[in-house]
Nucleic acid binder design. Sequence first.
DNA 1: ATTAAAAACAGAATTATATTCTTTATAAAT
DNA 2: ATTTATAAAGAATATAATTCTGTTTTTAAT
Lengths: 157, 157
Amino acid sequence: MAQVLDKIDTKILGILQENSNRTTKSIASELGMTTSPIFERIKKLEKEGYIEKYVAVLNNKKIGLKLTVFIGITLQGHTRSYLEKFVNEINNFPEVIECHRVSGNFDYLLKLVVEDIEAYETFIISKLTLLPYLGNVQSLIALSTSKETNEIDLSRV
Amino acid sequence: MAQVLDKIDTKILGILQENSNRTTKSIASELGMTTSPIFERIKKLEKEGYIEKYVAVLNNKKIGLKLTVFIGITLQGHTRSYLEKFVNEINNFPEVIECHRVSGNFDYLLKLVVEDIEAYETFIISKLTLLPYLGNVQSLIALSTSKETNEIDLSRV
DNA sequence: ATTAAAAACAGAATTATATTCTTTATAAAT
DNA sequence: ATTTATAAAGAATATAATTCTGTTTTTAAT
């Protein structure tokens, strides 16, 4: 297999991660090509998994979910079967949009999006702290967010 | 202004945030309607800002960015003009995909996506620690990620 | 309850785009 | 130089987005 992604592929990925509604025609004209090779390349990027999916990004605030919170968690008992159970519970909470197992001062880091402080407190009290073996729990409440994107800088690739 | 989002709008948002390439026809058939009202509703949701943008989600690992890191930062000097400068610098680093000002044990929480541990170290040494007034810096390296989405549970809205 | 006005919908018609196909060019290997 | 494989161009087709018109439904005021 030759070079996996060439310059053109990288440019296409960059364009689509910024706006996935761009037409093949407009991408083609930007890159000085015609639609068919652009189309074929995009299909290839999809099939090979470089592009995972296409999604609409919503404005959480407008929808009524005004608060983002990060929660660092340390567990007390670390049996494998419990960890699996714990992660499974966490992932099923609709408030949780990210769950990472981390190294450092915590075992897990969660990212939540909730309505407001009250909804956050409800989550802590009637969901999170009901889980057993919970050790240290530390919350970081987002006061403001200056950057929040999924867009990757592809100049590094 | 009447109820801002009705059930149909919410369903449309739910569908599009899961897969923005769904055709109006397929959405219409799922919701038991015809294409024109669906089309009009989507355009309205875009114009009013409920839908911010449409993006392709890439597979970072496949692209060569294998490491996600969270960094908690405390600052020492907190003059307003310095904060602005600091945030501005942070936001311009291509490794940083999120920057939140937080309350709790840190002033800022960053999310980074980088190639590997080496690239992470390079970021710390030759970018982050060059910024003045830096206090405590604490990294959480993602060992594994069980959930990572932008998708919001709309049943709460 | 009745009516007028506005909003939402259905269905058809049109326009634009995605997708496929065929041909031509390019590059690599023998 | 010749063959083979890969990528691109350009035309043709299929599908989807978008617009338009007429109808129904909803809303609000009387």
